[in-house]
């Protein structure tokens, strides 16, 4: 993961975060665990990448954050997708599928 080009990394990470949050709200650590889970452990997101990304997406208006009690009654900052975040997820998914298809074809050729 560390060897991947930064632009791809960023784009991928954003997409994964949005995807991870699609079913419902999660706190930062939860997002990280969910990504590990849904990618079958392929991606393990370090806090140094995760939190800047979360804040960037919040700043862009795709995520909303609020403080709530966690499952074992600790205060944690929970992130949810906003309307425009959900739209963004749709766009990025489509985009990613196009790229993935194009690259797969390129590699088959």
């Amino acid at each position: 993961m560390a060897r991947q080009p930064a632009s791809l990394l960023q784009g991928t990470l954003d997409l994964l975060i949005l995807k991870a949050l699609a079913p419902g709200e999660l706190h930062g650590l939860g997002v990280s665990r969910r990504i590990e889970q849904i990618t079958g452990g392929t991606f393990s997101v370090q806090p140094g990448s995760l939190f800047p990304a979360l804040h960037r997406l919040e700043e862009a208006g795709w995520l909303e954050a609020k403080w709530e009690a966690s499952e074992n009654n600790r205060r944690a900052k929970f992130y949810t997708l906003t309307k425009s975040g959900r739209k963004q997820l749709g766009q990025e998914t489509a985009q990613w599928n196009r790229i993935a298809l194009a690259i797969a074809r390129a590699l088959e050729a």
């Binding site: 806090p47 140094g48 800047p52």
Partner: peptide
């Protein structure tokens, strides 16, 4: 050790500023 909160905070600040400039 795993979190290294201070360095994460710096990165978060940079990310926020970058996002603001972009918008």
């Amino acid at each position: 050790l795993e979190l290294r909160a201070e360095s994460v905070k710096t990165q978060v600040r940079d990310a926020r500023a970058g996002a603001m400039l972009e918008t």
